[in-house]
Structures are given as C-alpha cells and as structure tokens.
Design a protein around this nucleic acid. Structure first.
Length: 423
RNA sequence: GGAAGCGUGCCGGAGCGGCCGAACGGAACAGUCUUGAAAACUGUCGUAGUUAAUAGCUACCGUGGGUUCAAAUCCCACCGCUUCCUCCA
C-alpha cells in the first residue's frame, strides 16, 4: 500500500507514477475522495460513540432508583452508534480497496513504459561461441542422462522433470554455493514453509492480478508459494523490528510452484519454464533511507553468482510498466542462452520500499522514537533455471559439460560432466 | 482422529458486566546516590486513528460475529498453542 500521507500531500507524485506505469491515473483521485469521505464518516461515528460512552457512564454512577430512566434514555443511542459505525466501516472498506488498487510509487529514474522499454545498464562477459553445432539443454540433459523430461511428463504432466545424477547434484551445488555466498554477506539462511494461509498470500500482494498463477488447495485452504519471498515477507508480519543497527537479511531456500496459466505454448521445451523449481532468495528488511543502497548490494551479489558460474549476462533496469505492483524499481539480470541466441532472466531484484511492509504491518522504531514501516527488498541468487545457461554455455563438442571452477568444490572436485561418469 | 485446557501490554502474570488501556512483578529508559559500576530509591514506560494539537475524542485484552444502555469479563464460530490418548513415522 502506498503512503496515505503522500497521497494527501503530494498526489501529483502518485499520478506521475501511475502514468509512468501505464496504470490508471484516475485511481488516485478516487482514493483521495474515498479518503475524505472516510474521514468524515469516522469523525461522525466517533462523536456518536463518545456520546454513548458518556451516557453509559452516567448509568453506572447513578443511584439505583434513577438507573431505569437513564437506561431507557441511553437505549436510543445504541442504534444510532451502530448505524454510524456501519457507515464508517463501509467508508473504510471503500478506502482500503481504493488504496490497494494503486501500485507502488516508482523511484525517480526508472524508465517509463512497458516490457520493451527497459534500459540495459551493462553487459558483462563474453557470449559463448562454438566451433561445432551447440546443443540445447534438453539435448545435453538427455545425452548426459541428467534431465529426464519425458518421465517428468509421464508422472506429473507437462512442465515437470526429473533431475538425475549430475543434474541433481549440479542443482544442489548451485544452491549451496548461493547459500554460502549469502551467509558470508550477512544473510541468515531460512528454509521456509511452501504452503501458506490466505492472509499471508494476500498480504504479500500475490492474490491480485496474478492470482491464477498460484496453486491452491481447497481442502485445506492453503496456497502453494511461487517463491519463498511470500514466507520471508510474512515472517515479521505485525512486528516492530529493530533495524537501527543495520538490516535484517534472510536467505530463503524453498521449492517454488507456479501454474504458468498465462503462458501456454511459451517456452514449452526444457526446464526454462516449469511448474516446480528450487530457488535461493535474498530478502532484506531495512530502514527506508537505506533501501536503494541495499538494492545495489543485492544486485552486486547476484552478479557475483553469475560471474562465479562463468556466464555472460546483462543487467537491465526494468521499465515502470513491467514492475510488479509492489516494486518501486526492479533490476533483472539475464544470462546469454546460446540455443536461443538471446538473454533470459536468471535473477530479479526488487526494491519494494515501504509498500509491502505497510500491507504486512512490519515496522521499525525511528531515531525519534516513532514507528514507521520498514522497506523490503528481494533478489534471486540461484534457481533451477540457471542450469539451462550453465549447461549450454559450458558444453563441449562431445556433449560433455565443463563445470565452472567455483562450483567444483560442491561437486567433489569434478571438472566435467560426461555421459560416462556417474554422480 | 478422540479428550481437556489455554490465548491479556516487550516478558511474566492478575482481572465481581460499569470506577480497566487494564493491578502487580520483571525488563527497558531517565534521574538521585556512587570516583565508576552494582544495589537501593524516584519517575517514565503499549499501538493506532481522528484532530492544527505531544489537548480532547475513538479503537484495540487471538480473529470475527452476537447479547447489553455498557463486554477483557457472558454466548457462538473460527484461528493458534499446550497436555493426554489413539494413529503414523
């Protein structure tokens, strides 16, 4: 949720943000009028309630013989209070939904426009070139017997797969390397629940426009999370946390589940877009004034991982229209995928400023003693998808794959994945 | 799955339907004392909304309903936790 004070004091900033996103600008004025309507209604209700409280007090203090008369007089007030309360609640609900409809105010400098209007901040590394016909990760996975997509489909349907042998070990190696990096960078490892209650899913904002992306278990009224961000953001829900000595950082490890409802026919080959994968996610709770610096820090760690995996990649500053509703700025890094001759997203790092924390009611105490929402940020450090770029980038003419040096300690020192070796 | 009990402020822990936003203890913070600290003593000490206001008023004792002029206190539902039994690891 955006800051209601910003809406009252500087609505033009909010309008400009909506405009940059290509979102509905009239929502801003709708929220402003809902706000003043609510204020009117709550003042009315509170005045009535004060009246009623005062008369109840009279009843309590009155001598026995006068009580009956006073109660009779007070009885009429109760109904009016109830009406005023109902009106005030309605106004509040209207205000809430008007406020919830407005997306986070984008940070100055974020490119305006839609999906294709991103700005490339830098390209790093050399794109792999081959003096043979390179294979895609599906072919490599089959040859090496490390990814079994056919059997994945047999037992679970399309977009499911088995990671086998070196494939399984490679994923674990990647995740562990990411966890080590995160731990050294002050992130506390956290293995999170992947089933969450409706309030938490709603609080993190994932039940909005993309609700059909999420698996739901009606028998238990629980949602399967598409990222550990859900549990990590909910972790300190309704708490006042201490970030005065620096941010609270978590490295969340979880399996992620996505229905991929809107992507029929897109990326159907291989494990680029799947219903279930693993992810190591960084998450920071921090004082708002330090959020932008933290965002760059998350990005730097992501780049460190990409470089450790010896991948060519570019970093983009996502355009306003392509941001999630919670994000005020988003940096993606995209690795070069040889078989597709293009960059594909491997990490995504969002600065949600105070938007998400306000919804989840996560606050901190400022130097002046007042409470205020914290800022939250998240970023990807490793996912199953990384295997695509790693396998394809480091493939050899014979179909074997060279293991990046940094990953070898996590794979018993092995230097190559070949069809003949066993995990 | 069966049975019982419990959910109060940062923590512990009281609370006859009206005088309870809530006793008491601890923690924390400020001060006195002390060379300094500890101890002792004194004071402060929940969150939020409304409002020009750190004045007033309003709300909050797991959540949501209900009864009542009035609910932390009574009733109902839900959520969570604990213990015991059963079951499965």
């Amino acid at each position: 949720m955006i800051d209601p004070n910003l809406l009252r004091e500087n609505p033009e900033a909010v309008r400009a943000s909506q405009r940059a996103r290509g979102a509905d600008v009239s929502l801003v004025d709708a929220a402003i009028s809902a706000d003043s309507a609510w204020r009117k209604a709550i003042q009315e209700f509170e005045a009535r309630r004060a009246e009623q409280n005062a008369s109840s007090k009279l009843v309590a203090q009155a001598p026995k013989e006068e009580k009956a008369a006073l109660v009779a007089a007070a009885q009429g007030l109760a109904a009016r209070v109830k009406d005023a309360e109902a009106l005030s609640n309605e106004a509040q609900a209207a205000l809430d939904s008007a406020m919830m409809a407005i997306e986070n105010v984008v940070i100055e400098g974020v490119p305006a426009g839609g999906e294709d209007d991103f700005v490339v901040l830098r390209e790093v590394g050399t794109k792999a070139t081959f003096d043979f016909e390179p294979r895609d990760h599906v072919a490599l996975g089959e040859m090496l017997d490390i990814i079994d997509i056919e059997r994945g489909a047999k037992i679970s349907g399309s977009r499911f797969y088995f990671l086998k042998g070196w494939g399984a070990r490679l994923e674990l190696a990647l995740m562990n390397m990411a966890l080590d990096l995160a731990s050294k960078a002050d992130f506390t490892p956290l293995i999170t629940p992947t089933l969450v209650r409706p309030e938490v899913m709603a609080g993190t904002g994932f039940l909005g426009a993309h609700a059909d992306e999420i698996y739901y278990l009606p028998a238990d009224d629980l949602y399967l999370t598409g990222t550990s961000e859900v549990a990590l953001a909910g972790y300190h829900r309704d708490e006042i946390i201490d970030v005065s000595n620096g941010p609270i950082r978590y490295a969340g490890w979880s399996t992620c589940y996505r229905r991929e409802a809107g992507s029929h026919g897109k990326d159907t080959r291989g494990i680029l877009r799947v219903h279930q994968f693993n992810k190591l996610e960084m998450f920071s709770y921090i004082a708002p004034e330090h959020a932008e610096a933290e965002h760059l820090r998350l990005l730097a760690l992501e780049e460190q991982m990409l470089q450790a995996c010896e991948l060519a990649y570019r970093v983009i500053d996502t355009a306003a229209g392509d941001l999630g509703s919670s994000a005020a700025r988003k940096y993606d890094s995209e690795a070069w995928v040889p078989s597709q001759n293009t960059y594909r997203e491997l990490t995504s790092s969002s600065n949600c400023t105070t938007f998400q924390a306000r919804r989840l009611n996560v606050r901190h105490r400022r130097a002046d003693g007042k409470t205020a929402p914290v800022a939250t940020l998240n970023g990807t450090l490793a996912t199953t998808r990384w295997l695509v770029a790693i396998l394809e980038t480091h493939q050899q003419a014979d179909g074997s794959v060279r293991i990046p040096t940094a990953l070898r300690p996590y794979l018993g020192g092995a230097e190559f994945i070949t069809a003949k070796t066993t995990a």
